[in-house]
């Protein structure tokens, strides 16, 4: 996917879009695409969900950490808890979120609006992005009754491409976030929540960009599968 095509598509989306919030979102993103990749603003994010089915399961929390000029900025890292309908059930064991904590949470529509505001003008980054995008798109469709186009760099897809260039077969588990990080000398993070995973994913992208670029200037096409 090349940047000119992307820009055209975003312009078109902005033109056709009747929702002011989304129009703003597309236009802001479109402006950033003219920057060199090293200066481009990214937003690493991660969602915690009650399960893997975007039609049935719900978003529990969202973590974001922006990347500005090649550096992650912790001052602007954020973690948002989302109210769910019903109980967390069994998955609370996995995510360490208990019902009690969810009383501080916002409802899903507020969360989706917050996400658009926070990530406006940033290219999204996530590990195994399609899953997270699925949940977001489903959410926006339910809320705005219209499809939202989201552009994201998938660090897992990037890693798969890089690994396949070196090996024929990819070992099971070698694309998990921690496994990917260890190949770039990145530290092991014991704790997991959406913010830490967003940070972990952002750091992985920095390492991948350094590895892909070598001494050359990167282009966005290198990052988008």
């Amino acid at each position: 996917m090349n940047a000119i095509y992307l820009k055209l598509r975003l312009q078109l989306d902005a033109l056709l879009c009747k929702n002011a919030l989304l129009r703003d979102y597309y236009q802001a993103l479109n402006q950033q695409l003219s920057l060199p990749v090293s200066q481009m603003p990214f937003m690493a994010f991660d969602l915690e969900m009650t399960g893997l089915d975007s039609q049935q399961d719900q978003i529990l929390s969202i973590g974001i950490v922006p990347i500005i000029a090649g550096e992650l900025h912790l001052a602007k890292a954020k973690h948002l808890l989302v109210q769910i309908e019903g109980s967390v059930g069994n998955s609370a064991v996995i995510h360490g979120i208990v019902d009690d904590q969810l009383t501080h949470a916002v409802d899903i529509e507020q969360a989706l609006q917050w996400f658009l505001e926070q990530t406006k003008g940033h290219i999204l980054v996530a590990h195994h992005a399609p899953l997270d995008l699925c949940f977001l798109k489903a959410g926006y469709l339910r809320w705005l009754k219209q499809e939202v186009k989201l552009i994201a760099v998938d660090t897992m897809a990037l890693e798969k491409k890089r690994l396949l260039r070196k090996h024929d077969v990819i070992q099971e588990g070698s694309l998990r976030l921690d496994a990917c990080r260890s190949r770039y000398n990145l530290p092991v993070y014991a704790a997991h929540n959406a913010a830490v995973d967003a940070l972990a994913c952002g750091e992985l992208l920095l390492a991948q960009m350094a590895a892909i670029a070598g001494k050359d200037e990167l282009v966005l096409t290198d990052l988008l599968a």
Partner: peptide
């Protein structure tokens, strides 16, 4: 919270 993080590659 004031920290920023960079990655430095040997290359």
């Amino acid at each position: 919270k004031s920290l920023s993080i960079g990655y430095y590659s040997k290359a």
